[in-house]
Write a protein that binds this DNA or RNA. Structure first.
Lengths: 335, 335
DNA sequence: CCAAGCATTGAATACGTTTTCAATTTTGTT
DNA sequence: AACAAAATTGAAAACGTATTCAATGCTTGG
């Protein structure tokens, strides 16, 4: 922002018109004669002028910035989501201010403060949750908040999620088909709504099929912890012969350990089902049966609902959308 | 940005001081008595006030926003880079406005225009190149541009790269150790400086070892295209027994095809070397010998040099940094 | 050809802050 | 105690834009 940038006043002078006219030229709805418009177009082009959106936002009260909060990018699901969210918002004339919430940086609270400092028009939180205090803060400022792939039913926030209950149930069906004896579950972070719902759906379907859970361990959505957890599950006389992992990312860890450490074959000795259907799940090395989240649909819904909430504040909130998942059968399960 | 947010004037009134005093309270170097500071602190807290950074940027001429341009996130190298860049910038009090350049969106030019509209203090382009016209435009506005993992030697832009020439040479050494008969190369996008330099370093080292290239195909840095390219390379009577792939992401594609389509063993039938050392390279499924880019170092250098250029504009430009790579021997090569 | 109405234009104001400037208070020195 | 120097304070201007308002120009229908 260092350069002595050219302003609407410069353009006005150069074109021999008022500053208001220049402003109107760059304001879609405004009233301006063709002759004026041409003069300004020419002057603006010669001077390489473009309106300063920060100054504009000061007066319009709209920054056209969306704060995007992400926890981590280790799991390939998130890069995909970010890429698509960002592209969709760009197409709608919004821009993304990116914040990494945890791990490298500290808590969510200071991050949220920084976001609000930029007077964002809206916030998208990808797999990150938020205290009720912060939620109230945003509500007071009438800044819409969209939770992506996580829900906090007690809070009046918008949310787009997969129907995780149904997803857990699909995962169970995929495993039950091979009539397993010992069914295990490798869980993510237990405070996450996604974990809770997927596991519940999974357990309910097992029960309906007359089966119950044999063993369980927690991987907290991280590869390294999932490796540990898999050791826990399999390092015993009666290891599982079917495994539901709460996301693909941990499922890859589990498969790696099962094959290279315990020398078991997938799916002959152990069936595995993941969740998400990230691109790598389709790679021959994994060829993972998984529950697909429909990212494109989730993204387009999240963006369109958020923009509606921003541009038509009267619309009643909160909106909670649940997208149905699909089971993708690949090579880690048998029929 | 919808809410009637509280301003410094409100705080001033509530604390019984001037608006200037409030501003000074939030300006680190400013002169303010302890008594004043306490009154303002209290008032600001009661009203939940925080300065509007957009208004501030209007007058200071500094937005503390860095435009980050990324081509795609399919390759896990980029999420890692983004996560770390974003965290490092956040720690230095800067924030990231994220732009996806191609594929989903169109050209770089309109994207650059949008970035400039936000009066960013600096720009980081991750594996994206830029026309000389755009570079000149940024120079005119005295906005520093940092190229990350790509260089355009003809342009006066800052750049942080790995010493790709050396990296290519290391890759060759790793392959030559097993005395291969037919050495192949799977290339990325041929316009990329990384591709050009890595290949050159590789070929020079082959020559020094008295060997030459047997075959070559292009995967353009995409998994799907790398699959095709690998078919080209191996679908012949004399397939390669050693393969250097320009990045890990394509190397995974190649390994998948080599193993699941051509039923060859790695490294017994074919040695493979990649480049980047993304997290997945260490996973047992791949266990890939690769040339490590030192991302942490590259990121911290890129950020510190960029910030120096922003905050001390007198510093002579451009700065080009080349970080030496390291060979990581794993299971896809033999000694 | 005239008047009413509408479209077009520019001057002036507002947005929320930082910063200069001059006025005032406090501090330090002898 | 007296004075110079330093620190503190508030009023006002500035940043670059959108928008209100009043004034002007143009169109149109009779």
């Amino acid at each position: 922002m260092a350069g002595k940038s050219v302003t609407s006043v410069d353009v006005a002078r150069h074109a021999g018109v008022s500053q208001s006219a220049v402003s109107r030229y760059f304001t879609p709805g405004a009233s301006l004669s063709a002759k004026m418009a041409e003069k300004i177009r020419k002057a603006a082009e010669e001077l390489d002028y473009r309106p300063n959106v920060l100054a504009r936002s000061l007066i319009t009260g709209k920054s056209r910035i969306i704060g995007l909060v992400v926890y981590y990018l280790e799991n390939q699901f998130y890069p995909e989501v970010i890429e698509k969210l960002s592209a969709a918002l760009q197409e709608s004339g919004y821009h993304v201010l990116l914040f990494m919430s945890s791990r490298t940086v500290g808590d969510v609270k200071p991050v949220m403060q920084q976001i609000l400092d930029y007077r964002v028009d809206g916030i998208i939180m990808v797999s990150v949750s938020m205290s009720s205090v912060l939620a109230q803060r945003c509500a007071d400022l009438s800044i819409p908040v969209m939770l992506f792939n996580r829900d906090q039913p007690d809070l009046d926030l918008m949310a787009v999620t997969t129907d995780n209950l149904r997803g857990g149930s699909l995962a169970a069906q995929a495993l039950l088909a091979s009539r397993p004896k010992r069914i295990a579950h490798l869980a993510g972070y237990e405070g996450a709504s996604t974990q809770i719902e997927r596991e519940r759906g999974f357990l309910e379907e097992l029960k309906a099929g007359g089966q119950e859970l044999h063993s369980r361990a927690v991987g907290n959505f991280h590869y390294a912890e999932a490796v540990e957890a898999t050791h826990e599950l399999f390092d015993r006389p009666d290891p599982p012969d079917a495994l539901f992992v709460t996301d693909d990312h941990m499922a890859f860890a589990a498969m790696d350990v099962i094959r290279s450490e315990f020398r078991l074959r997938i799916p002959e000795d152990v069936s595995v089902v993941g969740f998400d259907d990230v691109p790598q799940a389709a790679w021959p090395s994994f060829n993972l049966t998984t529950v697909r989240q429909h990212v494109n649909l989730m993204v387009s819904k999240a963006v369109s609902e958020l923009i509606t909430a921003i541009e038509e504040p009267e619309t009643p909130l909160p909106i909670k959308l649940r997208i149905p998942p699909t089971l993708v059968r690949r090579g880690t399960t048998r029929d």
